[in-house]
Nucleic acid binder design. Structure first.
Lengths: 152, 152
DNA sequence: ATCAACTGGTTGCAAAATAAAACCACCCTC
DNA sequence: GAGGGTGGTTTTATTTTGCAACCAGTTGAT
């Protein structure tokens, strides 16, 4: 997708090179919301058909989406998330939560995440370690590959 | 930044409209890694200066970055994350974790997150509710604004 | 004090990506 | 078998990006 692959040792850069553009992210969001068909994506996003075709092909090529026979049994096809694509769930949640916090005025309405079992809104999600510790920016730094690990 | 603001009720779309492009995301990543100066961003990213100037101005305009007098006391200026910008931490973590999982071959080296206190690598972070429940894609769906809430 | 190098840009131009519209073959329904 | 929807491709226009040159102000080294 990108002219200059940031062939970096940074996982952030690699992810951005694969799905870090406006349309790919919105396509993935729609896919999580159950959109499967070319025409559904097109109507939902208001994207030009040639661009959509390019993006879908790219997302299939990189293994985020997969083409399968239409769910309804017709001879058309569906675009569905692969397991690799489903792993982008946290990314979409991050985008959503930041958007909720910083792009809406207090009373303004927006779509919300709800628990499929109870249909109740999901409380704010936070990143925690397996033992339940909440991790924030100031707890963390990045160690580059050339940097030696600190002996304990 | 974007020609067609997806003036949507979806928080994901709004976030994507603000920071959902390759360079903005990489600039924010660098900012979390302590990069502050124009020239540092430019060298780190290999981005054209005019594009960098545009992006930095945009990120300042939307309140993700803030300009302040250079830390060293000179007459130059620094670009630093605002609180709003620091809230993008989860987004950068999401990008990083997906990249680690899906864009590196088993033995391949990459930068890692370490705990600032212990300097030990941070275990995988997961999204959890305040009571510690791990939430994944299949637990959740999106309720649109026009959709009625389910009476309990 | 002076000269060189660096900083933080801007400008102009070329190349690439994106968007809009027209077009088309196939499928599905009636 | 006619009409509309699907899933694209092609062509052309517009926008964005990238590259290189340039430049004024700042800093550092002598």
């Amino acid at each position: 997708m990108n002219a200059r692959p940031t062939d970096s040792t940074c996982p952030v850069a690699r992810t951005v090179d694969i799905v870090g553009d406006r349309w790919s992210l919105l396509i993935i969001r729609d896919a999580f919301d159950g959109v499967r068909r070319f025409s559904q994506f097109q109507r939902s996003l208001g994207i030009a058909k040639n661009i959509l075709a390019t993006r879908l092909r790219h997302l299939v090529d990189v293994g985020v989406l997969r083409v399968e026979p239409a769910s309804g049994g017709g001879s058309y096809q569906d675009y569905v998330l692969t397991d690799k694509g489903k792993d982008l769930f946290d990314l979409i949640v991050s985008l959503r939560q930041w958007g909720q916090d910083h792009t809406f005025t207090p009373g303004e309405q927006h779509s919300v995440l709800v628990d499929v079992a109870t249909d109740q809104p999901v409380p704010r999600l936070r990143y925690t370690t397996p033992d339940g510790t909440h991790i924030q920016a100031h707890d963390i730094r990045v160690r580059k590959v050339n940097e030696a690990a600190q002996p304990l």
